[in-house]
Amino acid sequence: MHALLILDMQVGLFHGPDKPWRGEALLSTLNSLLSKARKAGAPVFLARHVGPAGSPIEPGSPLTALVQELVLHGDEIIFEKYRPSAFAMTDLAARLRVCGSEGVVITGMKTQYCVDSTCRAARDSGFDTVLIADGHTCSDTPALTAEMIVAHHNATLAGAFCRVVDAEDWHF
């Protein structure tokens, strides 16, 4: 069984000044994946990135709250992380194993930081890792558009670090 992992879909990132590329489409994709996971009885994990006290994303900051557009039912496992990888300094790997998950389906934000780091760490932690090609995003940077960043990471991570699958083609 694969668990669904949604990274950093937080108010401060999603509704912040740097709007994510295809944000509304991403919300639709994530809500569809949430529905598929529930129907299959797959565990759902949501990570919230928090920073040190005094930072804009300190623990308890409203900027770290999950976006209300996600359709959550209250049975999801929500946890905080302090590093780009959802596996670093968390008990995610142990929780996945307790749930019986042999794999993890990775989605969310931001592609070149937390999505990339988590895909690599998931494989290194022994999990069958799936990246949803249309299930992650970021914002434009001075060097690259978000569309280019997403395409680059889908190509770079595919094979060595994970399988890359479109949301419509994924079944839990």
Rank of each mutant, 00 (worst) to 15 (best):
H49E: 09
H49K: 15
H49Y: 14
V50Q: 15
V50I: 15
G51A: 07
G51F: 00
P52C: 10
P52N: 13
A53W: 06
A53N: 09
A53V: 14
G54L: 05
G54A: 05
G54C: 09
S55Y: 03
P56S: 05
P56H: 03
P56Y: 00
I57N: 03
I57E: 01
E58R: 14
E58V: 13
E58Y: 08
E58A: 15
P59I: 03
P59R: 09
P59N: 12
P59Y: 02
G60L: 02
S61H: 04
P62Y: 05
P62R: 08
P62I: 05
L63H: 07
T64L: 12
T64M: 09
T64I: 15
T64W: 00
A65T: 14
L66M: 13
L66A: 11
L66N: 11
L66E: 07
L66K: 05
L66R: 11
V67C: 15
V67H: 13
Q68D: 14
E69V: 07
E69Y: 11
L70S: 11
V71G: 01
L72K: 06
H73V: 14
H73D: 12
G74I: 10
D75N: 10
E76W: 00
E76G: 13
I77W: 03
I77Q: 09
I77L: 08
I77K: 09
I77E: 13
I78N: 07
I78R: 04
I78H: 02
F79R: 10
F79C: 10
E80C: 11
E80M: 08
E80F: 02
K81Y: 01
Y82C: 03
Y82E: 00
P84D: 04
P84R: 08
S85H: 04
A86I: 01
A86Q: 03
A86C: 00
A86P: 00
F87I: 02
F87W: 07
M89T: 07
T90R: 04
T90E: 02
L92A: 01
L92V: 02
L92R: 06
R95A: 11
R95S: 10
R95T: 07
R95K: 15
L96D: 07
L96F: 02
R97W: 11
R97L: 05
R97F: 08
V98C: 10
V98T: 15
C99P: 02
C99Y: 12
C99N: 11
G100K: 06
G100I: 08
S101L: 09
S101W: 06
E102Y: 13
E102K: 10
G103T: 13
V104H: 10
T107G: 00
T107Y: 06
